Amino acid sequence: MTFEEFVEARLQALLRYAVMLTGDPHTAQDLVQDTMIRAQLKWRRIAAADLPERYVKRMITNAYVDLHRGSWLRRVALRGVDLDTGGQEPDHADSLAERDEMWLWLDRLPRQQRAALVLRYYEGLSDGEIADVMSTKVGTVRSWISRALATLRTHLTPTVAGS
């Protein structure tokens, strides 16, 4: 497979993956663009790997974890007004507000924990596969996921209790 064929077949999936990691489509585009430039320069070695897509995802994950700059975009969490809907379907704004709140929660996590959650729940990878992508041990992956979920639960619990 040539680099051009790989890009044509997998670019959109790699962009979606990067958006899940970063929480920001513009940062994700920058991350994927930089990674694809590096991948093109190393394409012979990447193409020789058993799974070129996994190799490139590892490159994206490592680039995300290594970002030393903070988020330049501050997000504002929108909260839906709790109105009696009279049996109607919930307002679309409520689901958007919940999604925005989830992005804020994910943004509070350390990069490794967030990456591990995205690989588990968005990409559907096993602990061993996540460890392979993140170049670490399975126990470390389990620890990151456990800590991330515990952190998210502490943010979720007051919201649920207040409802």
Results as ranks from 00 to 15, higher is better:
138 V>T: 11
22 T>K: 01
110 P>R: 15
67 L>I: 14
151 T>C: 03
96 L>T: 10
45 R>P: 01
112 Q>V: 11
5 E>A: 14
77 A>I: 13
51 L>R: 13
158 P>D: 11
105 W>N: 12
57 K>E: 14
2 T>M: 00
85 T>E: 12
119 L>K: 02
81 V>A: 15
56 V>H: 03
147 R>S: 09
128 G>L: 11
91 D>Q: 12
111 R>G: 04
50 D>C: 00
52 P>L: 10
28 A>W: 01
83 L>N: 08
11 L>P: 01
63 A>F: 02
51 L>N: 13
76 V>D: 06
113 Q>G: 12
88 Q>D: 12
123 E>N: 05
137 K>V: 11
143 S>G: 09
52 P>R: 07
59 M>V: 02
87 G>Q: 09
131 A>Y: 07
114 R>K: 15
99 R>P: 01
112 Q>F: 05
117 L>W: 05
81 V>S: 10
123 E>L: 03
109 L>T: 09
132 D>T: 11
112 Q>N: 04
81 V>C: 11
39 A>Y: 01
6 F>I: 08
31 L>P: 00
161 A>R: 12
10 R>L: 04
41 L>S: 10
19 V>E: 09
21 L>K: 03
96 L>H: 13
128 G>V: 06
116 A>S: 15
136 T>K: 04
7 V>P: 01
89 E>C: 03
15 L>G: 00
7 V>N: 05
32 V>E: 00
107 D>S: 15
162 G>V: 04
75 R>C: 01
108 R>L: 13
11 L>H: 10
76 V>G: 06
53 E>H: 03
22 T>P: 01
59 M>D: 01
127 D>K: 05
161 A>Q: 10
105 W>E: 12
96 L>N: 06
